[in-house]
Simulated assay, not measured.
Amino acid sequence: MRSPTGRQLRFGAELRKLRERAGLSATEAGQLLGIKQAQVSNMEAGRVGVSPERVRAIACHYDCPDKALVEAIATMTGDRKRGWWEQYREILPAPLLDLAELEHHARALRDSTTARIPGLLQTREYALEIFRQAVTELSPPDIEHRLSFRIKRQAILFRDDNPTPYEAIVHEAALRMKVGGPTVARQQLQHLLDMSDRDHVTLRAITFDVGAYPGSGQSIYYARGPVPQLDTVQLDQSHGVAFLDAEAQLHKYRTLFDRIEAVALSPETTRALIHNVMREM
């Protein structure tokens, strides 16, 4: 049996939260649902498929009053087909595949970075230089796999039908850093300008003049789900990728993003800043 994907694990975790809010143990839930405790555990571990109808029935037995949440959880199951990212399984770390899956299903994305251009807005040449500078040196095949994976992730911004709304807040330091040299850096800045012309892409910058601000020095990625309880925060940490979904954590990072946005330039002023940086290179 294949290990559950990040989305399947999240689905199981949400079923567990419904049960715990009802004050039921797994054994008690099994008795209520007429199934074995092991089946409850397998559902909550994301190891087995559950139909949307079964999700609604479980929520009814658990006396869950939040119909919007129940319907949102129901959309997470039923179809257990795996996406394009599966071709990279056992080639790239599993959390990267979970990230692509998260982006694919997100209703909207918010991204805040300090020292680098966000991955969804990177050019091939810029990303290549980033991978070449990895602390653990990557082999040429590894670099090529990571590069192609990053470019494929960007497809959500180019879909003809319903591209994902995306907001990026980038510090001036990332705009001025000559990653790959002046030519690559200028091409990257032009790509930012081109992407910011798209209706579903919002680009804002934070200037050096702002000084310290909430969340400075930390890259934060916020994926909005169909209801706020199903949002997800992704953080890059020294030991790898971390995903957060506790309600208190989601509230914290929603508030943090709003405060970051409050000190950022408008999209129009951001474009003017990028033009100035390009002229100074």
Rank of each mutant, 00 (worst) to 15 (best):
D236I: 02
D236V: 02
D236P: 01
D236S: 08
D236A: 12
Q237L: 05
Q237C: 07
Q237E: 02
Q237A: 12
H239D: 14
H239Y: 09
H239C: 05
G240M: 09
G240S: 05
V241R: 11
V241G: 00
A242N: 03
A242D: 11
A242H: 13
A242V: 15
A242F: 13
F243P: 03
F243V: 08
F243G: 08
L244G: 02
L244K: 03
L244W: 06
L244T: 06
D245A: 10
D245R: 14
D245S: 14
A246V: 02
A246N: 08
A246Y: 01
A246R: 15
A246T: 11
A246Q: 15
A246I: 02
E247C: 00
E247S: 13
E247V: 04
E247K: 08
E247P: 03
E247A: 14
A248K: 10
A248Y: 02
A248P: 00
A248Q: 10
A248D: 14
A248L: 06
A248T: 08
Q249S: 04
Q249A: 03
Q249K: 06
Q249F: 02
L250P: 03
L250I: 15
L250H: 07
H251Y: 03
H251V: 09
K252E: 10
K252Y: 05
Y253Q: 07
Y253A: 09
Y253V: 05
Y253E: 03
Y253G: 11
Y253L: 02
Y253F: 09
R254K: 07
R254C: 08
R254Y: 00
R254H: 10
R254M: 06
T255H: 14
T255M: 14
L256F: 10
L256M: 15
L256S: 13
L256W: 09
L256N: 07
L256A: 11
L256Y: 10
L256C: 14
F257I: 05
F257A: 13
F257C: 10
F257G: 08
D258F: 01
D258N: 10
D258T: 14
R259Q: 14
I260Y: 04
I260C: 01
I260W: 01
E261T: 13
E261A: 14
E261Q: 09
E261N: 12
E261I: 02
A262K: 08
A262L: 05
A262Y: 10
A262I: 01
A262R: 07
A262Q: 10
V263D: 03
V263Q: 06
V263K: 02
A264Y: 12
A264Q: 01
A264S: 11
A264F: 13
L265N: 06
L265C: 07
L265I: 01
L265Q: 09
S266Q: 06
S266A: 09
P267Q: 07
P267H: 02
P267K: 03
E268A: 15
E268N: 06
E268F: 11
T269R: 15
T269E: 15
T269K: 14
T269D: 15
T269H: 15
T269F: 11
T269I: 04
T269N: 14
T269W: 12
